[in-house]
Design a protein around this nucleic acid. Structure first.
Lengths: 329, 329
DNA sequence: CTGAAAGCGCTAACAA
DNA sequence: TTGTTAGCGCTTTCAG
């Protein structure tokens, strides 16, 4: 079942069929209809391998993800998918696990026309590989700078700054930071923003700590601090999971959020806005990130020259219910 | 840069190069080395479109997902990915959004060798389409029965039964069920299990309700019931999000879980085990599901005859901290 | 053990 | 507007 069958059935040549397939204007309307009819009757679908082979492109964009249990990724993926399909491309995802044997199968020029790397774990290796293979690609939410690779990141520094500033504006002077794993640049940046906001206000840090990006991580840190009787009036947390854990721990000890202590998170996980008190958090501009990422990739694919640039996006503080004016004692 | 370049460089024919590529034993060791060396030096990678075209298969299995923010899916995906790669296949994921224009791009015989449908939304349409296109496929966590389509589902009835039985064994007699959207068969099945367990114990339902699979959904239902002063001693919830919402609502009203009221969820979302009280829940056997699903698909692909069967897997009750002996009043 | 030739299904010149 | 011809890069006969 191929283009020849359609040609035979419609009484025209394969070339004409191909033209119909590709919406070439130079096909007599009556013939176009004949071809279409034959296709319909034969339930014909062009073979994509053959097309890719002869055209040298696939119409597919690949994206490598590390985790399918995160609102941030989910949102970025949806935007990218939608935008790509508007441009006539398909999105193929693959999960990046510690692949000992060989690399990601999508990282091949004949499988995809371009790649989007979202929060890559093995960033340097991936970048090197894709450069070597000469596949157009862009980085989203990545950690490092690379020459000649467009990337879109969130200004984590600013996020940290604004979250902290928000707490300061509420009158807090004893503010702690509980961040995530220190390998992440984003963690360091959020902390730097935190530090800067404090400094600007003439305050010093109440203390900092770190744990995994998990509820239990935040829970345990908070419990420890409570045991040590070391409590600030506000916590800025490296992400929403940690923040939720902190809130839990405090509540268990009868400490009310935000009445007694304020808590601010990061990322706006789906959950964060549903729990009570609904978490004040910093939302990353996923839609922008995905959209700009796709635009950059399209330019790369179409060979447009580009300033090899890092696009830094402003995050947005979402003030909800877990932060409040400091209680006057 | 193709097989001919390698042939030239190694001084052998393209056929020999092809043989080396495919590990054919009939290649003189010295020649094999020559070819390998040439490949290495040229940084050669065979063109997958050409291979697919000539072989009629791609080595790729497609999987269509609706949501990338869910522990259950995440676990299934990982297992499937691992198992598939053991068998020499690659997993390509695509997100199923309400695609008006055309269907999922992976649903093409020349793009994939098989398809795994995980919790498909438009189940009937998808099944029909794949059957028509004659693509081997299996269903995971689906809703309906289809002729000649292998599927793997969790026994939701049993899950509901065991969760409820657990509560009954703890002495509860006033047990409510808060389920998810009624379009889902799984929701009905869990409820049926709930009903049966009650009946068996000679109890009647305290009441049932439903809401979306969200924290806020469960929260609102529970708040409503509280306002109406209609409280059971235990809630069995359709999923963990709902359960977490219920717990929140109760706690806000000073009702302690599990001291005053027990709550049981479903799915074992990552979160569920981290919040305190850690949620008693029903875990779906994702590893089994993924593994069996892949096995079935492989059989289908290799043309082995199969009883067109639904494999029903037993879920597992995870007793944690949100359920306890009923308080004697 | 090796290679020449044919062809997978399609599109891109080039003619007509 | 249509068709003929020649590949895209690879594997698979079939000879040798």
């Amino acid at each position: 079942m191929n283009i020849h069958d359609v040609a035979k059935k419609s009484g025209l040549s394969v070339v004409t069929v191909s033209r119909v397939l590709n919406n070439s204007p130079s096909v007599r309307e009556s013939n176009r209809r004949k071809v279409l009819k034959a296709m319909e009757e034969l339930n014909y679908q062009p073979n994509s391998a053959a097309r890719s082979l002869v055209r040298g492109k696939t119409g597919v964009i690949g994206m490598s993800i590390t985790n399918f249990n995160d609102s941030f990724y989910d949102r970025v993926i949806r935007v990218v998918n939608r935008k790509l399909s508007e441009q006539g491309y398909f999105l193929a995802l693959s999960i990046a696990e510690n692949e000992d044997e060989g690399d990601n199968f999508l990282f091949q020029k004949d499988r995809v026309d371009g790649i989007i790397l979202l929060s890559p774990l093995e960033e340097r290796e991936y970048v090197e590989e894709l450069k070597r293979k000469n596949i157009p690609f862009v980085l989203l939410d990545n950690q490092f700078q690379h020459e000649d690779v467009p990337s879109v990141v969130v200004d984590n520094y600013q996020g940290g700054y604004e979250a902290t500033k928000h707490l300061i504006d509420l009158g807090h002077t004893q503010i702690a930071y509980i961040g995530g794993p220190s390998v992440f640049l984003s963690v360091a940046e959020r902390k730097r923003g935190y530090g800067h906001a404090l400094e600007e206000a003439g305050l010093t840090s109440f203390g900092t700590d770190s744990c995994g990006f998990t509820v239990s991580g935040g829970y345990e840190v908070a419990k420890r601090w409570i045991r040590e009787d070391k409590l600030p009036t506000a916590f800025f947390c490296g992400d929403d999971f940690i923040a939720l854990g902190v809130v839990q721990a405090l509540r268990e000890e009868g400490i009310r959020v935000p009445h007694d202590i304020s808590v601010v998170g990061f990322d706006d996980q789906q959950f964060a806005g549903e729990f009570y008190p609904r978490l004040t958090t910093v939302r990353q501009p996923e839609a922008q990130m995905g959209s700009i990422g796709v635009d950059l990739l399209m330019k790369l694919i179409h060979g447009e020259v580009m300033p090899p640039a890092v696009t830094k996006l402003a995050p947005q503080l979402l003030v909800r219910e877990s932060s409040a004016t400091v209680r006057l004692t």
